[in-house]
Design a binder for these strands. Structure first.
Length: 727
DNA sequence: ACGCGACGCGCC
DNA sequence: AAAGGGCGCGTCGCGT
């Protein structure tokens, strides 16, 4: 508690100059007057202060408002005395705040926020008003530059509004670890109210870039980006908030049963591991004796430590290195090639442990005890391509291979779960983006694209590339042809190299290369897509999705090698009084040529490293090798367009679903977005109509494409559960 | 004690 | 010779 008085002193000392710039509003009458001004202006920036980051479980402490022409105000709701921990006196009654925030909403005042979904949910749960965010500075920032290193309010404000001059007073570090509720109002209000101002000023800075017709928007070609922002991202916010509020019902009993079962499995596996190590007991003891004090092997051996496993396997047992690049690796790919019982046992142990800690034991812990549901975060702009990310918990990586785990999540009593996934969403989009006639035609004819490609690549018939013959008998060759074609097409989409594709398929590089060449020749659109995407990235610095979302790939234009002097002695005519920064001295062009050529000829990482080391030792030249980064950017060119377009499509579907009043009447609600799949639930009596409407809206999301979308629907009692038939 | 990167691995 | 794109999270082991 002593910290509070320290903070008070510090804030007064540093922020005292601002004390008259901000007001505290403690009664409804004063708030109503402020709201009048907001209504006149038609816009207001708003920021909440809370005791934590969970809008359902943490409390609102207060909120700030700012509208141009007025001072920013702070409205305290739930501050506590840091001495008695009792609710402090003289704060705004929640009912008053509710009435006035509702007035803002009813008068269609534009709410300007940063992290809009969070504040909107806090205000909904803790004050009881559903505000409609007009603008979210965070989303805007992600749309304007997904590579922004620090996409948080204070950093963006400092960088773009203050242009790096001065300091946007940062007191987050000051308040860190202390609940804002315990900070006295007369200390906290300056900090809080200031946030509303910077939220507004950042909005003012960003707005022109997202407003078609302005110089800023035009110069940076942001017309389409602004469309994605205003027509997809911003309207989606309330529906994502709603989805998080919905959460998914957790079957606690089932989860506990599963936990018990898997803990037993884990114990058994550990016992097995210990038993298996016993046969190496003598060697282990010898190793311990030899290493003595410095022995890194714990007692007993830590099965979870890669370091110790490496010692056990490579030093003690003497397993031969499987992977040249990583001779002491303990990854799955490596261990599965080591043919001893201990390796198999370790992998099984890891598998069980991962399931337990990440999923089985995690879910009952993270679920909201009041709702008995898991309310994950869905970050609408969590990825650089436009996809959602999910956290606390991540609902997008729940094992699907192991059906036990997903079954923890069930439909609400009286409801059924409906999942709808786009079939071959990314390949369809790739076909559209490429505008390849044959690919498009295959889809229009209702054919399987991979089979079609396989037939052409292997110069055979469509039927000969199917898993089953017309008479129902198996055709393993056909199945293999299809999987090879599929792996290569997907490889293209991900920028995967031919050798890696060959490795996956367990075929020779030559064979993979031949098929690849054939596919590129027969489907010229695919080749054109790759070339055009790369060209666009090089010329403009970015690629775009079908709907116009940008992915900036600045690294594609890096110099492959950058040369710098590191050692003054090696620089001819180096004048320490003149050339204060040696790294700025241009490296002898002859050296540049020599080493560029050496690097280009190098085979393998080791040789490149050796050349870099050589240049440093012999010539005092530092070589920065950017070829890896350039190659990465090249791979991202096609992938970003395909993955990003798919993300846009799924988001548009979510919008159509959220806006559909009939679906709402039927009691349907969205629960999860899993990239190419949406999962919702609906009262059992409305299943038939709701599921059909759900599917049709997902398909309608991409009606502008050359290829119709296709969705597969599943109706179950729980995630991956028993199918429910519509009666 | 905590923060951070690397690794490993779950999903699409 | 040959690095597949996009995530979040648990763990270890190093650094502060």
């Amino acid at each position: 508690m002593g910290q509070i008085s320290t903070i008070t002193a510090l804030v007064n000392q540093n922020l005292g100059q601002y004390e008259n710039d901000y007001l505290v509003i403690r009664d409804e009458e004063a708030l109503a007057k402020y709201v009048d001004a907001c209504i006149d202006n038609g816009e207001v920036a708003i920021d909440t202060e809370t005791t934590g980051l969970d809008p359902m479980r943490d409390d609102i402490v207060g909120f700030s408002l700012y509208t141009p022409g007025q001072k920013a105000v702070y409205v305290p709701l739930h501050h506590k005395s840091y001495i008695t921990l009792e609710e402090a006196n003289n704060q705004m009654p929640v009912e008053g705040a509710k009435a006035q925030l509702q007035r803002l909403e009813d008068n269609k005042v534009k709410f300007i926020l940063f992290n809009a979904k969070f504040d909107a949910r806090v205000i909904w749960h803790q004050v009881g008003v559903k505000i409609t965010p007009y603008y979210c500075g965070f989303i805007a920032s992600r749309m304007l530059n997904e590579n922004e290193p620090e996409a948080n309010l204070k950093a963006l404000y400092k960088k773009y509004v203050m242009k790096g001059e001065g300091d946007a007073f940062r007191f987050d570090s000051l308040f860190k670890g202390i609940s804002f509720a315990l900070v006295p109002v007369n200390v906290g209000y300056i900090y809080a109210a200031h946030d509303a101002i910077i939220t507004y000023e950042l909005f003012k800075f960003q707005l022109p870039f997202l407003t078609p017709g302005t110089v800023e928007c035009k110069e940076q070609s942001l017309e389409k980006v602004s469309k994605v922002f205003w027509d997809i991202e911003m309207p989606l916010v309330p529906y994502v908030a709603e989805m998080e509020d919905n959460g998914v019902a957790l079957d606690y009993e089932y989860a506990y049963k599963l936990s018990e079962e898997y803990h037993k499995k884990l114990d058994d596996k550990e016992a097995e591991f210990v038993a298996l190590t016993c046969s190496y007991e003598k060697q282990i003891q010898a190793y311990r004796d030899k290493q003595g004090y410095a022995c890194k092997l714990s007692e007993p051996i830590n099965i979870s430590s890669p370091t110790q496993i490496a010692i056990l396997f490579y030093d003690i047992i003497g397993v031969e290195a499987v992977d040249k690049k990583n001779p002491r690796g303990t990854a799955e790919e490596i261990m599965s090639k080591i043919d001893i019982p201990l390796a198999k046992c370790l992998l099984e142990y890891r598998g069980i442990k991962k399931l337990l800690s990440t999923y089985i034991d995690k879910m009952p812990n993270i679920a909201n005890p009041k709702t008995k549901r898991v309310h994950a975060n869905f970050n609408q702009n969590g990825t650089d391509t436009g996809r959602f990310s999910s956290s606390e918990p991540n609902m997008q990586n729940i094992p699907s291979h192991n059906k036990d785990i997903r079954k923890m999540f069930m439909a609400t009593e009286g409801y059924a779960m409906i999942s709808s996934d786009y079939s071959a969403q990314e390949p369809r989009l790739m076909a559209h983006l490429s505008q390849d006639k044959q690919m498009i035609q295959a889809y229009l004819d209702g054919k399987d694209l991979y089979v079609e490609i396989a037939a052409i690549a292997f110069d055979t018939t469509y039927d000969e590339c199917l898993e089953f013959r017309a008479d129902g008998s198996k055709n393993p060759e056909g199945k293999e042809r299809r999987s090879i074609a599929k792996a290569i097409v997907l490889g293209v989409a991900y920028g995967k190299g031919i050798p890696a594709i060959a490795k996956d398929l367990n075929i020779s590089v030559e064979k993979a290369q031949k098929i690849y060449d054939r596919i590129m020749k027969e489907f010229p659109g695919l080749k054109k897509l790759m070339e055009e995407s790369e060209k666009s990235a090089r010329e403009r610095g970015y690629v775009e999705t079908f709907w116009g979302r940008k992915r900036r790939l600045p690294n594609i234009n890096l110099e492959p090698y950058v040369f710098m002097y590191t050692d003054a002695k090696k620089v001819e005519n180096f004048d320490p009084f003149f050339d204060t920064d040696m790294t700025q001295v241009e490296v002898d062009p002859q050296m540049v040529r020599l080493y560029t050529s050496k690097m280009n000829k190098a085979r393998g990482q080791d040789e490149r490293k050796r050349i870099i080391w050589q240049a440093k030792e012999r010539e005092g030249i530092l070589i920065i090798d950017n070829t890896g980064k350039i190659a990465e950017a090249v791979r991202q060119c096609v992938n970003s367009r395909v993955q990003g377009s798919a993300a846009d499509q799924t988001k548009i579907a979510m919008l159509l679903i959220g806006r559909n009043t009939r679906l709402r009447e039927l009691g349907f609600r969205l629960l999860l977005p899993v990239h190419d799949e949406l999962i919702g639930e609906c009262p059992i009596e409305n299943l038939e109509e709701a599921s059909e409407l759900f599917r049709s809206l997902m398909i309608a999301a991409a009606k502008e494409l050359s290829i119709p979308s296709k969705c597969d629907i599943e109706i179950t009692d729980r995630w991956y559960g028993e199918e429910i038939k519509i009666v």
